[in-house]
Amino acid sequence: MIHHSLKRKVRDATHRLMARSWGRTGKGIVALAGVGLAGGCVQVTAPERPIEINLNINIRQEVVVRLQQDAQELIRNNEGIF
């Protein structure tokens, strides 16, 4: 009987110790994960200039004129979308 209760006391003490050490390790892991997440954050900021709609951007007029034949064929071959 004495032997039995002694065994239980030892077992309980071991459990408490494990719980305490796990608690500490667990907090450590959470803290580490937090640092990792903060370090990996991508900062998204709004562009400095407003987005402008300019239909004439990047267009060389001589290229547009040269492409007229191709454009005509493009429309003919894709009736549904033109």
């Binding site: 267009i59 547009v64 191709d70 454009a71 005509q72």
Partner: peptide, 11 residues
């Protein structure tokens, strides 16, 4: 953009 603009002329 140029291909698109050229096609716009035909449209």
């Amino acid at each position: 953009e140029e291909a698109a603009a050229a096609t716009a002329c035909q449209i």
